[in-house]
Computed example of a mutant assay.
Amino acid sequence: MSFFTHLGTYLLMLKGMFTKPENWRMYWKELMHQSVEIGVGALPIVVIISLFLGAVTTVQTAYQLVSPLVPLATIAQIVRDSMILELSPTVLSIVLAGVVGSKIASELGNMRVSEQIDALEIMGINTKSYLVMPKILAALIVIPCLITISAVLGIWGGRTAGNMAGILAPDIFDVGLRQNLNLYNINFALYKSYTFAFIISSVSAYYGYNVKGGALEIGRASTSAVVVSCILILLADYGLAALLL
């Protein structure tokens, strides 16, 4: 399939989601189920990665700032801005593309191969709306929350690592943390979070929903979903930085 064929099918899938639900309670239950699956399932890896990202950033920043003219509090500013602007939104989204994206693609792919989607359509249910939309909405709700948690944990991990390594005391870190804080950086991180969440969920749903074949094709679809999501995340990261910063 060519790029334009993929794009047309993708847009048709998104367009087909916007219909009146047959049963609001059923759709709400599916949305809550997907939110729990995505959020709780990805939380442990988010916590581990965020803590070590903050810790490594603190240690490497201290290693590079060798001049005695640079205040130690500057380390905290660099860690704070690095976690908020880039590390938490982008690096974590790439990890979530593997964790969440592959799950969405394989789940929908398995339903397509086992003809569960066909059975739902015979029953008169709009499968694009019932299966795809709750996953995208859940990702738009949960992934920005995970990225916010990641930024907080990353900064705390950097503070703890700086204290344990004897690089800078917690009170000095706290001083730097409050200096020259630009609140727009937080808004920018949220813009990226929602954009990346939509990319991960919609691209993965597209590849899973349109699987043709058997179990082997499900694995290929999951791999393609992760690869394409990561590439689009990096492209969107550059585009948003060029436009909004």
Rank of each mutant, 00 (worst) to 15 (best):
M1N: 06
F4L: 15
T5P: 00
H6L: 10
H6C: 06
T9K: 13
T9A: 14
Y10P: 03
L12F: 07
G16N: 05
M17R: 10
N23Y: 09
N23Q: 08
W24Y: 13
E30H: 14
V36N: 06
V36I: 10
E37D: 12
G39Y: 11
V40Y: 14
P44G: 02
V47L: 13
V47A: 08
I48S: 02
I49R: 04
S50Q: 07
S50L: 05
L53A: 11
L53P: 01
L53N: 04
V56Q: 09
T57Q: 03
V59K: 08
T61F: 06
Y63V: 11
L69Y: 12
D81T: 11
D81F: 05
I84L: 03
E86G: 00
L87Q: 08
P89W: 08
T90H: 06
V91S: 05
V91D: 01
V91E: 01
L92F: 08
I94C: 08
L96W: 06
A97M: 10
V99G: 02
V99I: 12
V100S: 04
S102G: 13
I104L: 11
A105F: 04
R112V: 00
Q116V: 04
L120D: 04
E121Y: 00
M123D: 07
N126P: 10
K128N: 05
S129R: 10
L131N: 01
L131M: 02
P134Q: 04
A138G: 02
A138F: 00
A139E: 10
A139V: 07
P144N: 03
I149T: 03
S150Q: 02
V152D: 01
G158H: 04
T160Q: 07
T160L: 10
A161K: 02
A165G: 00
P170R: 00
D174T: 09
D174E: 11
G176Y: 10
N180S: 11
L181W: 14
Y184S: 12
N185H: 14
L190V: 15
Y191G: 03
K192L: 09
Y194V: 15
I199H: 05
S201N: 08
K212P: 00
A221D: 00
A221C: 00
A221G: 01
S222L: 03
S224T: 15
A225P: 02
V228S: 14
S229R: 13
C230D: 15
A236M: 15
G239I: 13
G239Q: 09
A242M: 12
A242I: 11
L245I: 12
